[in-house]
Amino acid sequence: MEGQHTIHSFDEELRNLTNHIGGMGGYAERMVEQAVSALVSADTELAKKVIEDDALLDQKEREIGEDAVFIIAKRQPMASDLREILGAIRISGDLERVGDLGKNIAKRVTAISEARQPVRLFRGITALSDLALAQLKEVLDAYASRSAEKLGFVRDRDEEIDAMYTSLFRELLTYMMEDPRNITACTHLIFCAKNIERIGDHATNIAETVYHIITGNTMPPERPKEDKSHRIVAPVPGAGG
């Protein structure tokens, strides 16, 4: 990246932009992590902090957008520089959504932790969020190290998240049928799981953007992605199971 342009400050501006993406990514990662940890440990204070942090992430996105427009207007970049800048705008959009999803999880903490919940409800959520966070870290690392090799792998792993989500959906449904007192918590938890699953989707989007920034091509299409939870029904007792 260094010293490609005769105007040194252009490099500086591009570098600043990518650094801001890095900072934003770190923030989004942290928000999701803290939201899930607040959920599992019923920590309403931490949840409040996550909700407040979202404003900062929104502001970061606006700043990146402004910087990007400024660079485009001032330098009229082409080819890889233009990809870099447009990519930054797209990635910041995805990261902002990730933050929103994290915030939404944090908002549900109060409702869920009103009554004490059995540990088993949360086991799947933690595992699911670890998967999504690993994806997010992997794509942002690829963005930092400019290596496109691992990106295909990231996208394939998104299937794993979808499968896990479907299974979790089924499990939570069972708990609701077992005991109606579980319904409040489980309904909120299903939304949380869905949010985490969508964080995985945003990671996949970022993977595609990063691939485009690095190679200039779009990622080869092989995306049989869908979760199957829309087909799950709770078995009606006495209907032969």
Partner: peptide, 17 residues
């Protein structure tokens, strides 16, 4: 880590920034 990459991109956590 590729040469020329900034540290802020590699270590993204807010406290590291």
């Amino acid at each position: 880590i590729a040469p020329g990459v900034s540290l802020q991109l590699k270590f993204r956590a807010p406290e590291m920034h």
